[in-house]
Nucleic acid binder design. Structure first.
Lengths: 251, 251
DNA sequence: AAATAACTTGTCCATTCGGGCATTATCTGC
DNA sequence: GCAGATAATGCCCGAATGGACAAGTTATTT
């Protein structure tokens, strides 16, 4: 086996397992531990992994891997959402997805649907869906990059959203109540959500039950502008009545 | 057997098996190892495979080659290039950066410069620079998301680039030669690079010495459209003369 | 603080690389 | 068809690379 090949396999192993020991690598490639150390030294030098005592670790920039693991944990909830969404979103549809922890899980669920076109401002959503085998086209909206949430925001994003007219807008919100409607805790994200609603034929809001009845700083839209709410469990009768009145479909 | 035929079979073998040794090839074609080495030298020169100690490897420029692997290549050369680039860019500048392993390393170097505005189609570049404490604004260009390289491409990207007019365009290319100019191995990336050049006052091309004199599928620009080439080491006298003639500054 | 594991550095040997040179095959123009 | 030119090939040798072993140093554990 050639050194290059070995190093690339080391890199792959580190990427997959997160952390590997010098000893294990030496056995696997049947070379001495010194050789492995030199390899790790080079790889660390070039900044693609991190050396630790006893082995090497993937650096957190490549959080995709651990990211997937976290996604896998929520498999059950994902399945529930996937089923509910699959009833709304059909193969071949075009949809907006905004940034949020819920929409991210949702993206994973959508990755199983064929021929989707997804337009999002979330880098993570784009990454999840881009990996899909299901012939999904992903448009990542451009704008000011916000590192914290790995998303783009700002006027440029709004501007680009306006170029599309899609079937569904799939949104995460911070709070919903019967009087005000949907709200977000971040101004920029609220603006993005607002724009997505304006250019979608059908608006789907994802919200776990805790968010119902609460308040947040920035308003996204009125209750009757929402077409569907996907919820993990049934909300109270009072809220259900309000939804009914606003002709919102509850899932 | 004709040399041409042999070379094409070597290329095929490398493509199939990923990696082959000089020894094996020499036996298979019943020629000396020197001949095989020469063949590999030529093939590597034209950029269709990669030489390694003891043989040759398929390069994974197009296929889903892990980006990390490319990061690990020529790490030292890229560090040198990054340092030189940091000397050109000044605090407060606005720059384009395209996608590439070299530009990614450079992004790390640029993260130390104050008050930059960076416009890029690379998610990774955005992540690296977004992390900086140096008051850097990052615009991520929107477009069709390509999962392999974590970048956006397509007409939307081109369209957005046209909205900017920046100080420097910092580009990675696959090959440069005196006759054709700069080339890329990916059509979409070549288009993006082209657009960036058109909307920048100063074009900087990053290239390690191996890329000089090579060829690649898609043309980016003529030599005289480049203002500066940042190289890890001095190219041959012949190439230097060509750069001189085209009034390209060499670093 | 001692014991142990892990890391670093230096040396040596085998393999591989690359250039120079001689030989042979192929091409080209007459 | 022939002579000269060009390219391809094989062999040799000094230089470079990779890997194992060993000795010394640093870090971790108990």
């Amino acid at each position: 086996m050639k050194p290059k090949q070995r190093r690339s396999q080391i890199l792959e192993a580190v990427g997959q397992q997160g952390e590997v020991s010098v000893e294990v690598l030496a056995q696997r490639f049947d070379v001495s531990v010194e050789t492995i150390r030199r390899d790790l030294g080079q790889l660390a030098e070039s900044g693609v992994l991190q050396k630790v005592h006893g082995g090497a670790r993937r650096l957190r920039l490549h959080a995709e891997g651990s990211f997937d693991e976290r996604m896998a944990e929520n498999a059950e909830a994902k399945q529930i959402i996937a089923k509910k969404l699959a009833a709304i979103v059909e193969p071949g549809d075009t949809i907006f997805i905004d940034t949020g922890s819920t929409t991210l899980i949702c993206a994973q669920a959508l990755a199983a649907i064929d021929r989707l076109t997804v337009i999002t401002n979330s880098v993570r959503v784009a990454q999840v869906l881009g990996k899909s085998e299901k012939n999904i086209t992903v448009y990542l909206l451009g704008g000011t990059f916000s590192h914290d949430n790995a998303e783009t925001v700002g006027p440029l994003v709004i501007d680009q959203i306006a170029r599309f007219q899609v079937d569904h807008a799939v949104l995460t919100v911070a709070a919903i109540n019967a009087d005000v409607g949907a709200m977000d805790s971040d101004f920029d994200e609220a603006q993005v959500a607002r724009a997505m609603i304006d250019h979608a034929n059908h608006t789907i809001v994802l919200a776990n039950v805790e968010k119902l009845g609460r308040n947040a700083a920035y308003r996204v839209c009125r209750l009757d502008e929402i077409n569907s709410i996907v919820c993990d469990q049934s909300p109270g009768a009072e809220f259900t009545a309000a939804l009914d009145w606003a002709k919102v479909e509850l899932r």
